[in-house]
Design a protein around this nucleic acid. Structure first.
Lengths: 158, 158
DNA sequence: TATTGTTATACTCTATAACTATA
DNA sequence: TATAGTTATAGAGTATAACAATA
């Protein structure tokens, strides 16, 4: 097959030699796929990953303050405000005033929030089961463990 | 320790019961840490993750077209245009015209691009070595393998 | 008709600085 | 002074639709 010297790359086989050792990029690509599927999964509940995560953490940790929630979610307090605003406006959570320290809000899930979350959690569990169905269970468990330990390790260094 | 009934959560021990099974969130948190560190690593070269990745792929795959590159990077063609614009403007790559198909550009790295990339790759390798220094080598290899297989699995399904 | 590269646009997430009210 | 929540803003990444040139 003689071709002209200058043509565009014609095969679909890419050389990922340099990129394959780039863990960050593997993480990004994998996460992008998960994220895209998750967006669709949460759409019926009018939730995004951040609002879903916030709701989960507030339910599992009653009376959480916004600063604590932001830390737990690894985002800035400033960016959490609009998320909490949205959940409060939709009456999925409440901002309770704390008598002993009037600077703080104690966040709590409402009944409506609890009901919505229950359905959303089920949907997310199904979404992940489907997404990782091709992955052996021990690989998935190991993945969670590795990522979790990595996160713990990094944040401890600060 | 008797406390008033309504106070904000006082301990730093969080209940991650629901979240811990949420692989997508583990991926996101881990990736965010990597990304934040990578931004600093690439800053001296005036590169971002996307421009760095594009440069790597173009060097390792001469005569790549923009559509092929976008596919390899898992981004939309439309979003690649500004990335290629930037690299071309900085004379790190060239858009070569393909005589046999005038719709296509054949992307190639310039000498300057090659020189910059060599330093950048070294910096990224160091950055990852440092970042994952607390992780056993086989965990890191397994992580790359799992993420890579996951990606291959998902994209094959389309 | 289909494909490549392109423009425009909207939305989301992230990061920073500065403000207020409370402690 | 320091902290909790807030506002404003800028930068970056992502997704979609529509267009011109070319096949």
């Amino acid at each position: 097959m003689n071709k002209p010297a200058k043509t565009a790359k014609e095969t679909d086989e890419f050389n990922y030699e340099t990129l394959d050792r780039f863990v960050g990029y593997q993480m990004k690509r994998a996460f992008n796929l998960v994220q895209a599927d998750l967006v669709e999964t949460l759409k019926p509940f009018d939730l995004r990953m951040l609002t879903y995560t916030a709701l989960v953490l507030i339910e599992d940790n009653p009376d959480l303050s916004q600063t604590q929630l932001a830390n737990a979610m690894d985002i800035e307090r400033a960016n959490l405000v609009v998320i909490v605003d949205e959940l409060e406006m939709r009456e999925l959570i409440v901002r309770d005033r704390v008598p002993t320290d009037r600077r703080i809000y104690a966040l709590n899930v409402t009944l409506a929030g609890r009901r919505l979350l229950k359905k959303a959690v089920n949907a997310v569990v199904s979404h992940e089961a489907r997404l990782f169905s091709g992955m052996p269970k021990n690989s998935r468990d190991q993945l969670i463990k590795t990522l979790s330990e990595f996160h713990a390790n990094q944040t401890r260094k600060l």
